[in-house]
Simulated scan of single mutants.
Amino acid sequence: RSMVTRAVSGLVGLVTGGASGLGKATVERLVRNGCRVVMFDLPKSDGEQVAKSLDPDNCVFCPGDVTSVEDVSAALDVAKSKFGKLDVTVNCAGIGIAVRTYNMHKKKVHPLDQFERVIDVNVCGTFNVIRLAAQMMSKNELGDRQEKGVIINTASVAAYEGQVGQAAYSASKGAIVGMTLPIARDLAMCSIRVMTIAPGLFETPLLGSLPEKVKNELGKQAPFPQRLGDPDEYAQLVQSIIENQMLNGEVIRLDAAIRMQP
């Protein structure tokens, strides 16, 4: 029997961190391919402008914080009232810091509140979005694919090869890797798939502030291709995951075979 390939056209998506970087590229690709999208990002982001520039009819900006139950619920309400449903959730919102656990030279210990903040946004924020989105998706009709939804999270190669100063960031991304399979198992009964992408070095605002020379040097750390990833290559994988139903409960490294040095 031939499987029905799920084209993204006609689907409704929620993308967190959607105003810049990997999230923005994901919003752009989904809208370009006939998806209607709720873009969720901080009130201070460029979300409003980005949504207007894309397609105001099919892309709406919702300001908010992923750690807030009220903010995420409000975004889901917008998906329901404006587009009638939710099929896809992509978690791209996240923060990072670089602080050593203990810095001997500066005699400075890692501030606990900074560690907690990264865990709160990256882990609790991601889980907050997952649990509320899953509740809404579970009410969908099964359709010809016998599927109610797809959730895609963003980890990082730092989950596996965290560098100096990345204790908090790596711990948060390792947690996202670790919860992928159990959440996929939890939501199997709801006919919802759960996947995680672990990107390597991508051309995003996180790296964008670096000088061109430094970016080129970073890109050369990858065996092949020796360059930073294009955010649309991340978005392309998001689309593939939505379309390919056998992808579930797994983490895909998208990293040009890079293995980060200390």
Rank of each mutant, 00 (worst) to 15 (best):
P199M: 08
T89C: 15
A19H: 05
I258G: 02
C190R: 11
V164K: 05
E70P: 03
R193Y: 02
L254E: 02
R145Q: 13
C59T: 07
T5C: 11
A133E: 04
T89A: 14
Q261K: 15
L22V: 05
A93P: 08
S191I: 00
R259N: 11
G125D: 09
N33K: 13
K85L: 04
M104W: 11
L30Q: 06
L132S: 07
D255F: 06
H110K: 01
C62P: 08
I119E: 04
V4R: 08
V121N: 01
E243F: 06
G64C: 09
G13V: 00
E250M: 15
L42S: 01
Q239W: 05
D230I: 06
V99K: 15
D255R: 04
T5P: 09
G47I: 06
N248P: 11
T101K: 00
A256H: 14
T5M: 15
C35R: 05
S209M: 05
S2Y: 00
F61T: 03
L210G: 00
V164Q: 11
E28G: 06
S170D: 02
L54P: 04
E243W: 03
M195Q: 14
V15Q: 03
N103F: 02
V177Q: 05
C59G: 02
S20W: 00
I252K: 12
K213H: 12
F127E: 02
R6W: 09
F83V: 05
I152V: 07
M39H: 03
T26R: 09
D71G: 01
A158M: 08
V69L: 02
N103G: 04
G143E: 08
G21S: 04
L228V: 03
Q226E: 12
A222M: 10
A168M: 11
T196A: 07
A25H: 01
I258F: 02
P231S: 10
V121K: 02
G125W: 10
A235F: 10
M195H: 13
T180E: 08
A158C: 14
P225R: 13
L142V: 10
P63K: 13
K82G: 06
K80G: 09
D71A: 04
K107W: 00
L11M: 09
G23P: 08
L14R: 00
C59D: 07
E70Y: 08
E243S: 15
E116N: 15
N122D: 07
A222G: 07
H105C: 06
V69A: 12
Q49T: 13
S156D: 02
P223Y: 11
V4F: 10
A256C: 09
V15E: 03
G178M: 07
A98W: 13
T67A: 00
